[in-house]
Each structure stands twice: as structure tokens, then as C-alpha cells.
Amino acid sequence: MASKKKRVKLKSLSQGRPPTLKPLHSLSSKATRTLISSHHTLQKLRAKAVAEGDEAKADAIAKEIEERGGIEKYQHASLLGQSSDRGGDSSRILMDWLVPIVPALKQHASDGRQMRMLEIGALSTTNACSNSRLFEMERIDLNSQAAGIKQQDFMTRPLPNDTKDKFDIISLSLVLNYVPDAIGRGEMLLRTLEFLKIPHHLDSGCQEIFPSLYLVLPAPCITNSRYLDESKLEMIMDSLGYIMVKKKLSNKLVYYLWRRVSFSTKRTCFKKVEIRSGKDRNNFSIVLK
């Protein structure tokens, strides 16, 4: 008689991540896209096996991921994707949106009140946000690839002790889609509130942007999911106290800037419910308990 599989809750984002190996030095655009896609697929399958308590299957998938290069090869592909000839750095969109308030941001910095940014899933210390010098940057990633990026899981990061340890903006670029399950994605969005400053009076212009969350996702997560579209995402974010202030949709990515406008402990429950049918849809979803 087969033994029952014990379901195990993924306690941190790192449980959904595979082992690591050294990356290759160069990849074609097609190979880069294929690697990223296959890595995400295998990572989700492994996370599912872990959650179901199927250790043998999880180990087998982990071995396959390792043989394909692990997270370091995935990160290498992601860095190549950020190069100027491959679509570029996603934080450039954010910086374009902030152009009207750059004078105010510079004034904050000169007055010793520089805005603080937490970049989750940071791959580089030389992206547009860092090079702007408008922010006091703190960068974290599960597998740091450079000095200046702290190796840390956001889901286990110690909570701030007081306001000075919180941030004016959090960057969550191509990170939420890496979380292996829908509940975990909801928990990550909810956890951002713990690290953002509460809405407060700021100089003219800045109050229309901060405190905020910069969220970047693969476009199909919104445009071709069975369980999520922009309307539902807006409802989820509204429940958390966010409103959309900026949006850009490209062929590959969707960029959002969400401003935190309220502080509430009452949440609406959002389940995994089909809103679009079709065999070619993906299963990306966000569950908020």
C-alpha cells in the first residue's frame, strides 16, 4: 500500500529555489528566453513536490535543475536580459516615471532626508535606480551576485524596529512570479506593507508617488492567466491599501507603480477562481487570505 504524501507549507521563498552552479559566460537571446522559461517551470514543479511531501520527486527535479546550471545560470540569463540590446534594465521605466519629481528628490537628499529604496531580487548595483543617486539603496537577493547586494530572503527578513528602518519605495521586479505558489505571492505582497512607511505628508509632487511599490511581471501573468487579470489585481492591491498610479504594458512585461494610501488590518479574501477559460491560458494566480 502506497504511503500518504504529507503536504508541507513552503515557509520561505528560498524553499522554492533550486541548488546553484556556475553560469555560462554568454547565451543567445533565444537560449536566454528558453533557459528562463524552463527554469521557472522546473522550479514550480519542484515547489509543488516539496509542498506535497514527495521528497523523491523533489530531489529528482532539483538534480535536473542543477544539471541545467541552477539559479546562478538563471541569474546570468536574467542579467543578459537586462542588457541594453536585450530590452534593458526594468528600473529605467521607474526612473522615467519619476522625472517630474527629480528636483524634489534631490532636495530631500540635500536636506538629509534621502528617500530609501529596498530592491528585492537585485541582480546589479549599477541599474538606473542605483546610478540616479536619488535613493539610499538597500539591495537583497536569495543568491547575491555582487558586493553591495545582501544575500537574504525577503520572506524571512527581520521586521523593521521603527520608521527609520522602513522604506519609501520597494522594487519587486520579476520577483513575484518567482514565488512558487499563489498563497506565497499573496503573502509577499502583504509583507511589503511591513517595510513601507505609512502614508505621510511629503513635499509637493512626492506625495503623489510615495510610499510605493514598483511591481514588474511577465505580461502573460496579467494578460493570459486563467485566474488573474488587471481588474482582479487592482482589487487585491486595493484590499492591501494600494492604488495604481502608473502602468506600462510591453510585449513581454507589465510595469506598475502602486502608492500606499491607507493602513488597514482588515483584508478581503481572494481565492484562486477561474476568470478566463482556454487551453492556452497560464495558471498564474495570487491568493490573499
Rank of each mutant, 00 (worst) to 15 (best):
R133A: 13
D59T: 14
T41Q: 15
K197D: 15
K150R: 15
S264I: 04
T126E: 13
F270Y: 14
K9H: 08
S91K: 01
V102R: 10
F195N: 02
S225H: 04
M115T: 07
I198K: 09
P23R: 08
I198R: 05
G69M: 10
N127E: 04
F263L: 07
S250C: 09
L98R: 05
V216L: 05
P180D: 09
K22V: 14
T20Q: 10
E52T: 03
S78N: 11
S204Q: 14
T41W: 10
A122P: 03
F154D: 04
D96N: 12
F135K: 04
N224R: 11
D141T: 05
L190K: 09
A56E: 13
L196W: 05
K44M: 13
S90T: 08
D54I: 11
G278M: 12
D168S: 01
L253D: 07
K6P: 00
L189G: 01
A182T: 08
A31Y: 05
V99R: 13
L257D: 02
Q152R: 11
K48A: 15
S83W: 11
A47R: 03
D280Y: 03
V245N: 01
S124G: 01
I243V: 14
S204T: 13
L42M: 10
H200W: 00
K106C: 06
Y256Q: 03
D203L: 06
K289P: 15
S264A: 05
Q107G: 00
T265D: 15
A104P: 03
S225V: 04
L202F: 07
Q75W: 06
P199A: 07
K289F: 09
R116T: 07
D168F: 03
I170H: 03
F270G: 10
E67M: 10
P220C: 05
Y227A: 02
